[in-house]
Simulated assay, not measured.
Amino acid sequence: MTELWAHTLTWTEVDPSRHPFELDEDAAKTLTGLVAPLLPSAEAAEEHRGRSLAAVTKFLVDRYGRWTCGWNWSIGEGDTDGGIVGVWCCTSHSVTTAEETAPLAVAGLLEWRDWLEDLAERFAALAPPSPSTGATADPWHWERACTRLVTVVADRTQAESGWYGHCEQVLGWFLAYNGVEEGQASEIVKGAIGGRFGSWIAPDATVVDVVSSQFARAMGETG
C-alpha cells in the first residue's frame, strides 16, 4: 500500500507544474458523485479503519496522479499522522453517510492541492538566485529557506502528532526543487534535524536556528 501513502511522495510526484489540475464548481460536483459510491459505511470504516478509504485514494490516483494521496492527510492523529488537511478529521469521525462524506473528501483534495501550490510558490521565492549553482550558493539562502519552511509546516500541521515527518518531507522537496538528488536530500535533512523535533510541540527559535544552520552547512559541504 506504499503507493497510496502520502509519506512516500516525492517532489516529482507532487510538483504542481508537472501535474496540472483544475476543478471548477461543476467538476467538483461531478467528482463528488464519482467518489460517493466508493465510500464505506460508517460501520465498515470503523471496522477496517486502515484500509476502508483505499478505494477512494486509488480512484483519485488513477484519475489525477499520485499527488492526490494526501487528500486525507489530516492534522494530528488522523488516518495518516501529522498532515495539514483541516476539513478531514479521520475515518472514525469524518465517514458518515456518502452524501455527507463525499464533499468532505473532495474538499480535502482541494485543500491538499492548495498546499502543494503554496509550497511551489514558496520554493520559487526561497531558492538561491541561481539554482543551477546548487551548494555553491550563499549559505544564507539555505538557512533562510529552512527556517521559513520549518515555521510554515509547524504552523500548518499545528505541530501536532507526527508533524515533523511532513516537515522532513517538505525540506527534502525543497532540495529536490533545487536539483539535489533524493537520497542525498534525505541525508541532509535528517542530519540537520537530528531528532530535535517532536510531536505536540513547535520548535522554539533556538532549535530552528540550529537546524537551519546545520542544513546550510550540509549544503555547503556538498559542493
Rank of each mutant, 00 (worst) to 15 (best):
E25S: 14
D26F: 10
A28T: 03
A28G: 08
T30A: 15
T30K: 14
T30M: 14
T32Y: 15
A36T: 06
P37D: 02
S41A: 05
E43N: 01
E43S: 10
A45S: 10
A45Y: 02
E46S: 11
E47A: 15
R51Q: 02
R51G: 03
S52M: 07
A55I: 07
F59M: 09
L60T: 09
R63E: 13
Y64N: 02
Y64W: 11
R66G: 09
T68G: 02
C69A: 14
G70N: 05
G70E: 06
G70Q: 07
N72D: 14
G76C: 01
G78S: 13
D79G: 11
D79I: 08
D79V: 05
G82D: 11
G82Y: 09
I84T: 13
V85Y: 05
V85Q: 04
V85T: 12
V85F: 05
V87L: 00
V87D: 06
C89L: 00
H93S: 08
S94G: 12
V95R: 00
T96W: 12
E99H: 06
E99I: 05
P103R: 10
L104S: 05
L104G: 09
A105K: 02
A107M: 01
G108Q: 05
W112L: 02
W112F: 10
R113F: 03
D114C: 12
L119N: 12
